[in-house]
Structures are given as structure tokens and as C-alpha cells.
Design a protein around this nucleic acid. Structure first.
Lengths: 241, 241
DNA sequence: CCCACTTCTTATCAGATGATAAGGAGGGCG
DNA sequence: CGCCCTCCTTATCATCTGATAAGAAGTGGG
């Protein structure tokens, strides 16, 4: 009695839909028979939520159940599970770095601190969500290349521009010298510290501070003060130790 | 032809051990017949490495192959896979917070900056390893309770003591007022920023700065300067925004 | 009302995977 | 030397799980 016995199968799967009891999952009643495009979007949207929650080892049957469809229907829209997963990646990661952010960072008509605080407010709104953070971490642990590419973009389009502004902020000539490792790492610590707020919230499910803007402001202030106090521009690798 | 055909099975599995070719995995030749305790330790050690690498959905057969033993032998030492996983958790997380660290943090005969730099050097040595960081993140994403407990300990034994030292450092009376959310979050940003260095290194496999001590020193300096510049002690929740 | 097209379900497969049972093999002790 | 205890392997199970095939069911045009 390994597989389900052929004819005696479960008693009317569809009855369960109408029955008031016996719906363990939030299986949306889901108006049957959607247009193809709509169904595809529905699957994708729920897949993002599902994989964010349980990871990419989550099973297609459970995903289908959540959507309120049968598991084989997934394969009508996505040839393989891997295809679906990749669409999820794109859905999440292709929220590309907004070019407006680079402009905001470089807008020297405003104090750098204000720019950075506003930038992080917007950046957080775009990426510090349950789905984004968790999919990001799952993908990273899987060794997905998308992560490394994303990191590179963050460095080039956000962190290095911030370093440039810091030089300006400190009264240094913009200089053509490339951003040093020390400068970049200093900004990474701030960036990572702010990111880690989201990790604590969505990955650890830990209680976190309520006033995110205030946290960011202190982090930015500290970072700028640190630069002023220690000076990271000089490529003198040796400092402590 | 579903399962392997009974008698015609794979041609001499043991021959593969001796054969120079056809050993895809680093299957240690592994002197056969270890004492029970030794074998258990060997399995546990390799399990830590294995699960850190591929996550806890990694398969028992592959783990066994890496050790150079057969898969059923695992079950002689660990009744279920879950048991093995839990032992791995303990192996990793029971590297408890060293009480010496709290002492180090509170040693007011030395400048706070030096204490914190030294603390992070030691803390990093204990926990910023490939295995620890990845197992920690995998466990967190799985929703393991161990994480939350660990976070709590970090807050109580490390971060809050740091907050107390910061008050002292700023010339404030130690006060009996509990550490405010703002104070704690400010330290969390530094702590998270430093932790994130390890995440970039071991989870993202990203290139990171070489001089960790220097990075920590700048982060600490910035954090302290930030406190001085903005003052986090007052429970005035509204700051920016 | 019925045909044709699209959407969705039922039944099922084949390989993967955690786990178990039964017996072989090394090696020390009487 | 052979018994026996412990360690380890082979063979196999039962279930899970990604994927496919065949046909049922809804829907709109003529």
C-alpha cells in the first residue's frame, strides 16, 4: 500500500473547498479558471511569500495547496521548480538599485547626514521587507551568483559614492585616487549595521527598536564622526595592530 | 525498474575505495573500525562542516560518503537525522559566551576603545568562522529557537554591559536607569556592522577587507564618537523625522 | 446548443531520501 | 584456535517529491 490506491482516492478533493471545516491551510477559495497571465502572477506572488518563509526546499505540493490549486498546475506555468525559483529571484532582485538614490547621495546642496538618512529611509522601504531579506539570505546561503552581483552593484552605485561624499564632507579634494579598502570597509560597517537591523527583525524574529529613522541617524552620525576622528582616507593600512 | 535491481546491484562498492579513479568526493579512506566514541566525534565533526556548507537539507547519504562510511552507520550513532542536527546545533552554539569577555568589557583600568577592540578580536576568533556563521544563519532561517536565546544572551552579557561602559565613558553617572532602546540599538548597529563583515565573507563569499582589527577600531571609534555627538542616553524618542 | 479552445484535475511515474533488518568482519580473550 | 562482542555493510522499505500524461470541465462563438 505504497501509493494512494488508484480508484479509492481521497473523497472528493473539491468538497473540501466548500466545506467550512477541514481547511488547514489558508487555501484561498481562488476563483477557478483564471486567465493564464493572471494565474502566473498569482503563483509567482505566492511563491515569493512561500519560499521566503520556508526556503527554497519548500515543496511544490505545499505551495500549490496555499494557492488553492493542484500541484501539476504549477508545471503548466513553470516548466520546472528551478524555473519558478529563478523567477522568484528575479522578482525580488530586479528591484534594481534605484538611480535616484545615487543622485540623492550626491546632492551637495544638502548636508551629507541628511542625505544619508533619507537614502536609508528609502532604501529600507524598498528592500527591508520580510520577503526581500529572507529570500536574499536564502539565496546567499545557496551560493547563488545573484547575490554577489547585487553586492557589487551596492558597492559601486551606493557605497563608493558615499565614500566620495565623505571625502568631500571632510574637506578633501575629490581626488582621483580610487576609494581605498579602508574607506569602503568603514562604510560597509555602517551599511551592514543598518542591514542587520532588518536581519534581526525578519530572520531572527527578534524584537527591534521602533524608531528606525532615529537608529539610522545615529549610525550615520557615528560613521561620519568616526571618519573625522580617525581619518580613513590615508591608505596607511596600519592603524591599530 | 524503479529501485536498484536486487542482486545485480552496483559492482562492488568497496572496490571503489581502492580504485585510484572514480572517487568524486573527498571520501577519507578512514581507517575502518573506530572505537564508538571516536567514530561519533568524527561523524559530528564532519556533519558540522557538511551542514554548514549545504544547509540542513543536506542528505545523509552524501554526509556518509564524505566521512567514508555507509549511510546506515550514521543511524547507529544518531537515532534520527534530527538528532544529529541538534547535536550539531549544540556543538556550535554551546561555544557559550565566554564570561571573560564581560570582564574584559568592564575593565575600567583601560580605555574603552581598547577594550572593545580587543573584545571583538577575541569574539571574532571564536565565532566568525565559516562553520559558525553559516550554521547560525541556517538555523535562524529555520526559525530555530536557539538563535533567539543566543541573541538574548548577547544583549544581556555583551551589549548591555557595553552600554553601561558607554555611559561611564561619557561621564554619566552609572545610574540605575535601565538601558534604553536607543542606547541598545546604537550598539547593535556597531555589533551588527562588525558581524556583517563575517556574513559578507562566509555567506556571500565576497572579498572583504584584510585588516579586521583596523576595521573594528574604526567602527568602535565611530560608535563612541556618535554617542558623544548625539547623546543616546536621553529617552527622547524623537530625534530626526 | 454544440464545437473548439483554454484551463485545470486525477492518476501516476521514477528517482530521492530517511530509516530498518539481517548478517558479515575484525580482533581480543579464554 | 575459535568464541563472542562490537563495529560496519548490504539490501531493502516506505514515503516524499519533482514531473508527466490523459482527460475532465469551464467558456465563448456560431
Amino acid at each position: 500500500m505504497t501509493r494512494a490506491s488508484p480508484a479509492s482516492g481521497r473523497p472528493a478533493a473539491r468538497l473540501r473547498l466548500g466545506s467550512p471545516a477541514a481547511k488547514r491551510q489558508r487555501a484561498a477559495p481562488s476563483s477557478k479558471r483564471l486567465a493564464a497571465a493572471a494565474r502566473e502572477q498569482q503563483i509567482l506572488a505566492e511563491a515569493v511569500r512561500f519560499f521566503a518563509e520556508v526556503g527554497f526546499n519548500g515543496q511544490t505540493r505545499e505551495l500549490a495547496q496555499r494557492i488553492g490549486i493542484t500541484q501539476p498546475l504549477l508545471y503548466r506555468y513553470f516548466p520546472t521548480k528551478r524555473d519558478l525559483v529563478e523567477r522568484v529571484f528575479k522578482e525580488v532582485f530586479l528591484k534594481r538599485i534605484d538611480p535616484e538614490w545615487s543622485k540623492l547621495i550626491a546632492d551637495r546642496t544638502r548636508p551629507l547626514e541628511d542625505r544619508l538618512v533619507e537614502f536609508y529611509a528609502e532604501y529600507a522601504q524598498a528592500t527591508y521587507t520580510y520577503e526581500w531579506i529572507r529570500i536574499y539570505m536564502f539565496a546567499a546561503l545557496m551560493g547563488e551568483d545573484l547575490n554577489r552581483r547585487y553586492i557589487k552593484i551596492v558597492e559601486e552605485k551606493l557605497l563608493k559614492p558615499i565614500c566620495v561624499e565623505i571625502r568631500h564632507h571632510c574637506g578633501l579634494a575629490p581626488g582621483d585616487a580610487p576609494i581605498s579598502e579602508a574607506e569602503l570597509e568603514h562604510v560597509w560597517v555602517m551599511h551592514g549595521g543598518i542591514f542587520y537591523y532588518a536581519v534581526r527583525k525578519y530572520v531572527y524574529h527578534s524584537r527591534v527598536g521602533t524608531d528606525f529613522t532615529a537608529i539610522v541617524r545615529r549610525a550615520v552620525t557615528g560613521m561620519l564622526a568616526g571618519v573625522a576622528a580617525i581619518g580613513v582616507t590615508a591608505p596607511s593600512g596600519r592603524r591599530g595592530r
